[in-house]
Design a protein around this nucleic acid. Sequence first.
DNA 1: TACATAGTGTTATATTATAACAATTTAAAT
DNA 2: ATTTAAATTGTTATAATATAACACTATGTA
Lengths: 130, 130
Amino acid sequence: MDKMQNLSKNQQIIFDLIDKSSEPMKAYSILHNVQKKGIKAPLQVYRALDKLVEIGKIHKIESRNAFIACHNSSCQVSKATAFSICEICEKVTEISSASLSKYLTNFKDKDGMKYSKYNLEFFGLCKKCR
Amino acid sequence: MDKMQNLSKNQQIIFDLIDKSSEPMKAYSILHNVQKKGIKAPLQVYRALDKLVEIGKIHKIESRNAFIACHNSSCQVSKATAFSICEICEKVTEISSASLSKYLTNFKDKDGMKYSKYNLEFFGLCKKCR
DNA sequence: TACATAGTGTTATATTATAACAATTTAAAT
DNA sequence: ATTTAAATTGTTATAATATAACACTATGTA
Ligand SMILES: [Zn+2]
Ligand SMILES: [Zn+2]
Ligand SMILES: [Zn+2]
Ligand SMILES: [Zn+2]
């Protein structure tokens, strides 16, 4: 489950598309964009997305049901993710803050429990939209 | 948009159901449970859910497409939410940690931007499942 | 009263995601 | 090289989640 592993044909096609996109992409939008490459069914898209998320090449933006490529070399397997989301233009940026990830990775709840994974989504207005 | 406002008939029915549930409830499960009370269509459920989220009586667990009642008196309008989610039994608990909310509310990204809202989901194993 | 806002009921439809089954490719393991 | 297991693909059908559009009713308030 290493980020550097070779991708399969469908995984590569779908990753390339998401990676080139300047905005989060939704599954059926991805499907429309790769039909000319021979990927015809939703399941082919979802399977590639599942794998790409698993190995940390992309992340799912849960509040938007959309996917972005990871550009944060330190986040290997989508176990500790944080994003900022503009509520007007829907621009999404992955946050890579060492102090934030340290704080959350070490966070213990009141029972002293630590967690193996987290996902954080911040909402506000981006620079352009303010 | 105050948590203390009176709820409409459908909102009250649906809130009561979610509030009594020990686990997050999904929209169509809610629908099945309130059909005997005269709520027959998905849209009736989704409208009530939207309103209840807006006023902070319930929260949506984004990674699960499910809803839980808020039991955190300090969280008025679902603007700063944190949950722990057990990956085995799917138990969800709302985290109310003053230091966590303080840290996240004051978090600024590298451009110095602060955000108006956040949602954080932690994943791990609950006490029972360890 | 008149008006505005919020809520309801209903049908239809859009969007997101998975089940089930068969075949093929890839990468070890012997 | 041959066997075996794991991963990937292709395909059809269907499940699960969510919204559009329209007509009507209730509620509060000026
Ligand atoms: Zn990343
Ligand atoms: Zn923006
Ligand atoms: Zn709450
Ligand atoms: Zn558990």
